[in-house]
Simulated assay, not measured.
Amino acid sequence: MLCGINPAVAQIPTRDPHTPGYVKATELPDGANPSPDSNGNFIIGPTHHDAPESVVQADIPQGKIYHFTMNSKDSKIYPGIAREPNTFGSPDPANPAKLIVTTSHPAPYNRQVAVYVPEQYVPGTAAPFIIGADGPDNLLFVVLDNLIAKGKVPPMIAISIGNGSGDAQGSQRGLEYDTMSGLYAEFVEKEVLPLVESKYQVKLTKNPDGRATMGGSSGGSCALVMAWYHPELYHRVLTYSGTYINQQWPYNPESPQGAWGFHGHLIPESPLKPLRIWMEVGDQDLFNPNIMRDGMHDWVLANENMAKALSVKGYPYQFVFARNARHVDGNVRKQTLPEALEWLWKDYHLEH
């Protein structure tokens, strides 16, 4: 999703990964991915071919995929909001970083949840798992089938959670994904995971080292928000075109820059957290695509700043700058997701 784009002002330039001020990165041969054994900054493309693990392989064990629906009336945490169609908001004349939205109101929603259980899961054992935003994500399930069969990642359960509808400020999706707090992680912990365990007779690990989050765009920043505010729940984060910009709503003076604050001050000024982070951004990713002019709406710069902040602080991370790639680019995902997941779980040891 394109995070509140106004097409009339969406002029998206192609960025050069060697722009002054960007992180120094290793340029890989066209079509190559960084090694899952390596940390740091890498440049890929311009050609993007599907990794073998992104394609269904009929001769390996296939996990089971289950679906269920959650209704807003059953949620104590997210009863539901929506922004009126074809409306956005206006910047506060006194503060360009604050968007005033007058067309958001209570509204019901349904969300779809898909659960992948690998064939190798042993009933009764506590399984590692990954939470995905904007689900269902069928590519994730295919990749996990292939990686698990090859022993490149542990047998894990994947829980791909649909958003509550809409996009950006004033929407249910925006409220869930762009809010700088632990609330969404708490919603998953209290309202989603118990349903998964009871419906499908699986046991999910309580060990944060065996729990990962992932997503693209605002779902990507949400993945980091979940782990940042609840590191006792999640240690692993994977993001495509993360919305590390100022998109939080309602405005909160405690986090006035929204997710831009991650690289602006939170990561630099906070003690090191036990997080392992994989990130990607495209050379044609989003650039100031709405009516706010606060200097905090460049997705490429935001992700470059993230890589810089993570490096300085000493986090284990891998950052991929993709040439010839747009926002949450599907071809890039099919090229890189297997390597990204292998990198993300590289240091994990199965529980016994």
Rank of each mutant, 00 (worst) to 15 (best):
M1C: 13
L2F: 11
L2I: 14
G4C: 02
N6R: 11
V9Q: 08
A10D: 11
Q11W: 10
Q11G: 12
P13L: 09
G21Y: 09
G21E: 05
Y22P: 00
V23C: 13
L28D: 10
L28N: 05
D30M: 01
N33E: 09
P34M: 07
N39F: 15
N41R: 09
I44T: 14
T47S: 14
T47P: 07
H48P: 09
H49N: 15
A51C: 02
A51M: 01
A58M: 12
D59Y: 12
I60F: 01
K76C: 10
Y78N: 06
Y78W: 05
I81M: 10
R83P: 06
E84V: 09
T87F: 00
P91D: 02
A94W: 00
A97S: 12
K98Q: 02
S104E: 05
S104A: 04
P106E: 11
Y109K: 06
N110A: 02
N110V: 13
Q112R: 14
V113S: 08
A114E: 06
V115C: 12
V117S: 11
P118G: 02
Q120A: 14
Q120S: 12
A126V: 03
A126I: 08
N138Y: 14
N138E: 15
N138Q: 15
L140S: 03
V143T: 05
M156H: 04
M156K: 04
S160F: 15
G162P: 09
S165G: 06
S165T: 13
S165N: 12
G166H: 15
S171L: 05
R173Q: 14
D178P: 02
T179K: 13
G182N: 01
G182K: 09
V188Q: 09
E189S: 12
E189N: 09
L193C: 07
Y200I: 12
P208F: 00
P208V: 00
D209M: 08
D209W: 07
S217W: 08
C222V: 06
C222Q: 09
C222H: 08
L224A: 06
V225K: 01
V225H: 11
M226L: 07
A227V: 13
E232P: 04
Y234T: 11
Y234H: 09
H235Q: 14
L238C: 08
S241Q: 03
Y244Q: 02
I245Y: 03
N246D: 01
P250R: 07
Y251L: 10
P256C: 03
Q257N: 13
H265G: 03
E269T: 00
P274S: 02
R276M: 03
I277P: 06
W278H: 07
E280R: 07
E280D: 00
G282V: 09
G282L: 01
D285R: 10
L286T: 07
N290H: 08
H297K: 04
L301G: 05
A302P: 13
M306T: 15
A307S: 15
A307M: 01
A307G: 15
A309K: 03
S311Y: 11
K313A: 10
Y315G: 07
Y315F: 13
Q318I: 01
A325N: 11
H327F: 13
P338W: 03
E339L: 04
A340W: 05
L341I: 01
E342A: 10
W343D: 01
H349F: 06
H349V: 15
